[in-house]
Simulated assay, not measured.
Amino acid sequence: MNTGWTGKLKKHKESYLLMMPYLIFFILFTILPVILSFVFSFTYYNMIEPPRFIGWYNYIRLFLDDDIFITALKNTMLFAFITGPISYALSFLVAWMINDLSRTLRSIATVVFYIPAIVGASVYPMWRLIFSSDAYGYLNGFLMKLGIISDPIAWLVDKKYVLIILILVQLWMSLGISFLAFVAGLQTIDRSLYEAGVMDGIKNRFQELWYITLPSMVPQLVFGAVMQIVTSFSVAEVSIELAGFPSTEYAGETMVTHIMDYGTIRYEMGYASTMAVVLFIMMVATNRIVNKLLNKVGL
């Protein structure tokens, strides 16, 4: 009896056939680009000449000769370690709070909290108006009316304020896919577990949360963590729309905007691929650390 991979392939051939369209697109548009990025990162490639192998030169240049990349790396790490955990915790907290509402109220609340993630791109003009550099900007006008400031502040131009504002706006848009996953996950928990918990001595909602809710939502918690990591490390649009491209003294530069600069403007695809590889490794490493932390706390 053939029990190897060929036997399994024949036994489940219908399942593999159904998966084939997805697998083809996944390989072509996910796996292959990642592999090519690794390959091109060791080359000089300007999209006109054939790629030319240059070894580790791009990596040496990246960390030792590119001051803007170091700025982008610091900004990306700040985004990741501020917006990531806060957004993750906030997504779960809001989902948990609205979970016991009636179905209609829960649906309405879900839409209300999810709207910023949907319409985020369309309300950038509103944010630019709020943080406008003249006296007609809402924030400047409000602070001047209270007498806190006497002259308008260039919020989106002054490098002291740019990154703080970008982080605040990103947090406002943070209830995304992970929030929906948590809402769905909370609805799938067997209600009899809570009844059994009461019999076993659980006395309040927080014990219920720790001993029943969180262990019952491991797949959703892991999925939410992965999505938050990807989102927090790939910040670019909010920086481009509010701070400009490039921002003042690169105060709002992130790794993705730096990749876009070299990849879509300068056409230095080899160097851009090097940055993409570094970003990919950072995401994978952070994901492993987060999964270990979840496992350590019993999730």
Results as ranks from 00 to 15, higher is better:
residue 1 M to G: 15
residue 2 N to Q: 12
residue 5 W to I: 15
residue 7 G to K: 09
residue 8 K to T: 12
residue 9 L to R: 01
residue 11 K to M: 09
residue 13 K to W: 14
residue 14 E to A: 15
residue 18 L to H: 05
residue 20 M to D: 08
residue 21 P to N: 05
residue 22 Y to I: 15
residue 23 L to T: 13
residue 25 F to Q: 10
residue 34 V to K: 08
residue 34 V to D: 06
residue 34 V to T: 14
residue 40 F to A: 02
residue 41 S to L: 06
residue 46 N to S: 01
residue 47 M to L: 11
residue 53 F to M: 08
residue 57 Y to D: 11
residue 58 N to K: 00
residue 60 I to V: 13
residue 61 R to G: 12
residue 66 D to N: 06
residue 69 F to R: 00
residue 75 N to R: 00
residue 75 N to M: 04
residue 76 T to H: 01
residue 78 L to F: 04
residue 80 A to T: 15
residue 83 T to E: 01
residue 84 G to N: 09
residue 87 S to E: 06
residue 88 Y to S: 08
residue 90 L to Q: 01
residue 94 V to E: 00
residue 95 A to Q: 00
residue 96 W to M: 07
residue 97 M to G: 09
residue 98 I to H: 03
residue 98 I to V: 15
residue 99 N to H: 11
residue 99 N to G: 01
residue 99 N to Y: 04
residue 99 N to W: 00
residue 106 R to V: 03
residue 106 R to P: 02
residue 110 T to F: 06
residue 112 V to Y: 14
residue 112 V to L: 15
residue 113 F to V: 12
residue 117 A to T: 08
residue 117 A to Q: 09
residue 118 I to A: 12
residue 118 I to G: 13
residue 119 V to Y: 12
residue 120 G to P: 09
residue 121 A to K: 13
residue 122 S to L: 15
residue 123 V to F: 04
residue 124 Y to C: 13
residue 128 R to V: 07
residue 129 L to D: 13
residue 129 L to V: 09
residue 133 S to D: 14
residue 136 Y to M: 11
residue 139 L to F: 10
residue 140 N to P: 06
residue 144 M to H: 03
residue 145 K to N: 11
residue 145 K to Q: 12
residue 146 L to E: 06
residue 149 I to P: 13
residue 153 I to D: 11
residue 154 A to P: 06
residue 154 A to I: 07
residue 156 L to N: 05
residue 163 L to Q: 10
residue 163 L to S: 06
residue 165 I to K: 02
residue 168 L to H: 02
residue 171 L to R: 10
residue 176 G to K: 09
residue 180 L to T: 03
residue 182 F to G: 00
residue 183 V to A: 01
residue 185 G to E: 00
residue 187 Q to N: 13
residue 190 D to N: 14
residue 194 Y to H: 08
residue 200 D to I: 02
residue 202 I to N: 04
residue 206 F to V: 14
residue 206 F to H: 07
residue 207 Q to V: 07
residue 208 E to C: 01
residue 209 L to S: 05
residue 215 P to S: 09
residue 215 P to Q: 07
residue 216 S to G: 12
residue 221 L to H: 04
residue 222 V to I: 15
residue 224 G to K: 05
residue 228 Q to L: 07
residue 230 V to F: 14
residue 234 S to G: 14
residue 234 S to A: 09
residue 237 E to G: 15
residue 238 V to P: 05
residue 239 S to L: 02
residue 243 A to S: 08
residue 244 G to R: 09
residue 245 F to C: 04
residue 245 F to I: 10
residue 246 P to S: 05
residue 246 P to H: 03
residue 250 Y to D: 04
residue 251 A to T: 05
residue 253 E to C: 04
residue 253 E to K: 04
residue 253 E to D: 10
residue 253 E to G: 01
residue 253 E to F: 02
residue 254 T to M: 02
residue 255 M to P: 00
residue 257 T to P: 01
residue 258 H to Y: 13
residue 270 G to P: 04
residue 272 A to C: 00
residue 273 S to V: 07
residue 273 S to A: 14
residue 275 M to E: 08
residue 276 A to L: 06
residue 283 M to A: 10
residue 284 V to L: 15
residue 290 V to Y: 02
residue 292 K to C: 10
residue 293 L to V: 14
residue 297 V to M: 14
